[in-house]
Design a protein around this nucleic acid. Structure first.
Lengths: 117, 117
DNA sequence: GCATTCGTGTACCAGTTAGTATACAGTACA
DNA sequence: TGTACTGTATACTAACTGGTACACGAATGC
């Protein structure tokens, strides 16, 4: 079930094809973890890293942090904080949007962004 | 900083004023934890209980689970799951709504509910 | 006035999280 | 040919999570 692992490995190897500084060892060092640990993460041999480590990894590999976090079964702290501040309001909204198709949710996003609320 | 604790205690004592079955001991038993533990939770002497325990507590005390979870610094699993399924979409939406006033968010909620999406 | 119920203090704990540290065999390359 | 880098196997762990178990003295109820 380690989509995260294979995704990370593929992403890193794809970067490595054009820049040999993207080895397990070097990426691990820049991210601030042991190479053996990154190796295990990529092979799904351990539980997903912490949010902080995932975000540093996302930066290093130039991918969306929210995407990586989602693959790790997590949600960014700052989003949680928004919900936590007004739990009833946001809980209702999110449950309402739960089953709507992407394009409908996107329409809401645009509307909010463009509208003068 | 234990808003959760004092909230729980006040809520329970308020119920107890009209029904003496809402003692620490009896509530704890119905919720499925040790009375000493519930006591410590109410006095903020320990970290907030798990999501499952909080939800059972919310049912027992007839309060909104989402509210209790928020006070405990948590967000309901089912909401996390919604975000996790479409992380980029929902991350954008939530960050867009972050600073809007309640009434504006509520307007979005109603619009989604009433509209034929 | 005695048993019951009350809230709480103290001691303990198994499982999980998020990794580290080191060693080792294969490969590249000069 | 050797040295430098590659990925990985193995062993370990400190801190945190989410509680339990039991005993105690104070208050309550009849």
């Amino acid at each position: 079930m380690s989509t995260l692992g294979t995704f990370l490995r593929e992403r890193r190897e794809s970067l490595r094809a054009e820049d040999r500084r993207y080895s397990v060892r070097q990426v691990a060092e820049r991210v601030g973890v042991q190479p053996s640990y990154l190796s295990k993460v990529e092979r799904g041999e351990v539980a997903p890293p912490s949010e902080d480590t995932l975000v540093r990894l996302a930066r290093e590999l130039a991918v969306e942090p929210d995407l990586l976090l989602a693959m790790a079964g997590k949600v960014s702290r700052d989003l949680l904080e928004v919900i936590r501040r007004r739990p009833l309001l946001f809980a209702e909204l999110i449950r309402e949007l739960k089953d709507l198709p992407d394009h409908a949710v996107l329409r809401v996003v645009r509307e909010v962004r463009d509208g003068d609320w």
